[in-house]
Amino acid sequence: MRDLIVRVIARFIIPFIQVYGLYIVLYGHVSPGGGFAGGTVMASSLILYVMAFGARSEKRRLPEWVARSIESAGAVFFVAIGLVSLFQGTTFLANQAAGFPMGIPGRVFSAGAIFLLTFGIGMKVFSTMITLFTHLIEEEEKEGTG
């Protein structure tokens, strides 16, 4: 499983996959994509890392409590943006009525709170996917050694 070609290619290609996933997340409101698709692409880069370097090395880079914190923070961030609208005197998750700046249509900083909400969803999906995969792999390795 620990192949030299796979490791060299993975080390070369993982940053590009992560930048592409972040692009899909951040441009979710102006071009195709969004939080779920971008988060899955970002998670697939870390899954490639696990397959090339093993689950232990990945655990050192991204400990489980960090992944769990990112997962919870994504959901809390989403609800917090919704509550900001509530405190402004409008409905939950209201966008323009709550005073979020609209920006120029077609740019990244447009559409007010959608930008932030998509980012929260992306972080949540990213950490959920990577936690799901590492849990499956981890138990298998434990079984193999013991």
Binding site: G34, T40, A43, I47, L136, E140
Partner: peptide
Amino acid sequence: PDVAITEAAMGAGVTTLLLFAA
């Protein structure tokens, strides 16, 4: 294209790997 990106990342990528792990 929105669904296409999700299908390519989810169906061809992550689902395959999770099924392999299973």
